Amino acid sequence: MTRTGDLLALGAAAGVIAGAAWLAAAADAGQRYEAGLVLGLVAGLSVALLRRFTRLPLGRRRPYTFALPRPAPDWRTPPPDPHGDPEALRPHAELRARLLSDAAALGGALRHSCALEPGLREELTAFATTASIQACNCVLHPAGDGPLGPDPAYDTAYALGELIAAVEFSRIGLRALEALVTGQPPVADPPCYFNPLHERGQARAVLAGTALAGAAEEVAVCHGCAQEPAPLLVPSAAGPVPYHESDAVDPRWRLLGYGAVVADSGAAMIAAAQDGFRAPPRSRGARADGAGKLGAKVSR
């Protein structure tokens, strides 16, 4: 509100309080208590409205403080390697999903007060809400409760793929909330395409396609996999296979590489969770199933 508006609002509030005081003074002796109560309510409400909608120095304003839940996740430490056993990863995934669920209300609280521009605020709030719902959904079913597969290994691979998605969605949601709390826009932080449980994909690699000669696709990889790819293996009837070649892993996460195919701070994963899978942009001739040679060439 402008300075003139502040003064007009102050004058209007003073007039309302003066009118209430005059009515209280003119009240009969038996109505003095009720009149005084009304005067107090009118005065308190007027001061509260002036503090909320003007910049007048009416008492010290206490700034709102927001904090992420404790214990704060240590994102620098990679999640445990489950070695094909989803139950080895489940406690870690459930803890991350629970932390995000506890903090998700922060997004709504900061929607109108964060320093970021309104469009980004709304986007990050939606990220936090969707990521929290998806992370909780991904940790609901233990191995054996997923879709009926052609062999016992199918459900185990499915459960492992879902728990990895829960870890990634928890990271996306908590990073969105961290941006809202700090007022600093998030930067792209994709996982490693070969193994989403490795360190983050700070390097870029080109996958050689197998369908057509010369077809290639650039993805995010960790520094270790940039030198020697070490894919995440999931169970199958024929033995362990890379997750991106397994039909048991949800195609939304598999074809996106849990967000490594498009380094967009989680927007592709959120869109896949909300609207179903949308195929990411690919190089001409690249295979639709995302399975390329495990050899990688680091892009310069």
Rank of each mutant, 00 (worst) to 15 (best):
I164P: 07
D85V: 08
F53I: 00
E218A: 14
E123P: 07
P242A: 03
P79H: 04
A176T: 05
P71K: 06
A20S: 15
T125Y: 11
S170Y: 07
L120Q: 08
D85P: 11
D102Y: 08
P196V: 02
R55L: 13
L37W: 10
A248D: 04
L197Q: 00
L49A: 12
P86A: 06
E34K: 15
A143Q: 06
L100D: 04
A263C: 13
A215F: 10
T125K: 14
P91W: 01
H198D: 13
Q274S: 14
G290D: 15
P63E: 03
S236M: 03
D6M: 03
A20T: 07
G183D: 11
A128V: 11
Y193V: 05
T125S: 10
A288I: 02
P78Q: 05
L180E: 03
G84P: 09
V249M: 12
R51Y: 09
V261S: 09
L212A: 12
Y154K: 03
S236I: 00
A211P: 04
F66K: 03
P190K: 12
Y33D: 13
Q274C: 15
E168Q: 13
C192F: 00
L110M: 13
C136K: 12
A35T: 01
T77K: 14
E87Y: 01
L45R: 08
A135E: 00
L56V: 04
A115F: 06
L177P: 08
A205I: 06
A208I: 07
A226N: 09
L116S: 08
P147H: 01
A159F: 10
Q31M: 08
A35L: 02
F66P: 04
A296N: 02
E94N: 04
E168R: 15
D275W: 04
L160H: 06
R76P: 01
A21Q: 12
G36I: 00
G183I: 03
T125R: 15
W253E: 08
P82D: 00
W22T: 10
Y33M: 10
P69D: 08
